[in-house]
Design a protein around this nucleic acid. Structure first.
Lengths: 207, 207
DNA sequence: TCGTTGATGGTATGGTTGTACCACAAAAGG
DNA sequence: CCTTTTGTGGTACAACCATACCATCAACGA
């Protein structure tokens, strides 16, 4: 055998090239050739590591979903002290708002995938089903804990509020992606809404 | 001259064919041929009424935006009695939740266009900028009026709440589109959230 | 009545895309 | 040492796409 190369590393390299290519011209414009050029390899190589384009797209989607999970978890962990429901909730929801350019690119591709998976039968849309419902339960649990501690308003339905929170962050994130709003505005609105759920701001937050 | 045909009617017919075609296989899969077949005309005819594909897509997008406006206005008017802020707000926001199949198809294409317009330079993304900010002001005004009437909680910031409402309905609508939630669930959550803004339910609404 | 013009069909064309095929190099195993 | 396997490049190919071009037919204006 020749160089005896690390397959997983090569695959990751190519997938990253796909994501970069999609960032520039949109997921719909991604071709085998554009990925190959971006990765600096021949088209044959892309074929070699991912037999077909569909499999390449699928692998990239899985990697994207994994990264999304990592992003959220990193945000939660960055908050350090585990037992501050409002802080945790805020951290998780802020992840949906694309602030820097890298985050924007990430969320754009993620959204493109989500929309594409509705019509494209090859892209199993199941990936986009699991994560949100987990998140829903997680947020509801945090809200319940916050109510027990007296931090959150007592009259609220934790589950319904969790769904609302998820919808708000998704909606705000989308509006930022569509250039309807700046990221700063979205963050401010999110803070405002959290202020309504947690009557006493935990840290002199907005409004 | 021959039949002396109504151009606008022909154009509308072809655009409708495009929307139908996009409903089945996604906007990205729409081709001149698929539109022609769906419209029951030759490809040449599509070329004749819309010189290029880009112009066809653009015209369809404009028609879509117009329809969206009509939909919202129809909902508002269907409420009849003009001066019920909660009812009006509810009607407007419910439009974003795809209930029947026709509404679902409509919103799917609309979302596909919105996402596409981010990367595609030909599709002027300005169309998607104007409407939401108008809506924002409209909702804020309704909330202010509701506060004056004592229907809405007094402590709220009408503008921020308007943005939240818009984000919630967009987020819920998207989640329904992505099959993460049923339309009924989304409607229930929206009712719940409105119940928090309007402490006295106007009509024995949910929660 | 006749040519001019609007409306339509068919087909050719140049480009692009995904994928299959062929060739070759290089390292490992016998 | 030779053969088998793994990685890589180049290229060919069939399909499809948007668009340009050519032809035709019918009706209105003169």
């Amino acid at each position: 055998m020749p160089k005896l190369v690390d397959h997983e590393e090569r695959r990751a390299h190519i997938i990253d090239a796909l994501l970069r290519s999609a960032t520039n011209s949109g997921l719909h414009a991604v071709t085998m050739r554009s990925v190959a050029v971006e990765a600096g390899v021949s088209v044959r190589l892309v074929q070699y590591y991912f037999d077909t384009k569909e499999q390449l797209l699928l692998a990239a989607m899985e990697r994207l979903a994994t990264r999304m999970g990592e992003r959220v978890q990193r945000r939660v962990r960055a908050r350090g002290g585990a037992t501050d429901p409002r802080g945790i909730i805020e951290a998780v929801l802020l992840e949906a708002v694309p602030t820097d350019e890298e985050s924007r690119a990430f969320h754009l591709i993620y959204t493109e995938y989500a929309v594409l998976s509705v019509t494209d039968p090859g892209l199993g849309g199941q990936q986009f089903l699991a994560a949100p419902s987990e998140m829903e339960a997680f947020l509801a649990a945090q809200l319940t804990a916050a109510q027990r501690d007296g931090a959150a308003a007592p009259g609220l339905d934790p589950h319904q509020e969790a769904v609302v929170l998820l919808a708000v962050s998704a909606g705000l994130g989308l509006s930022v992606l569509l250039n309807q709003r700046t990221a700063d505005e979205a963050v401010a609105v999110l803070h405002y809404h959290l202020g309504r759920i947690f009557p006493t701001p935990s840290r002199g937050a907005y409004a």
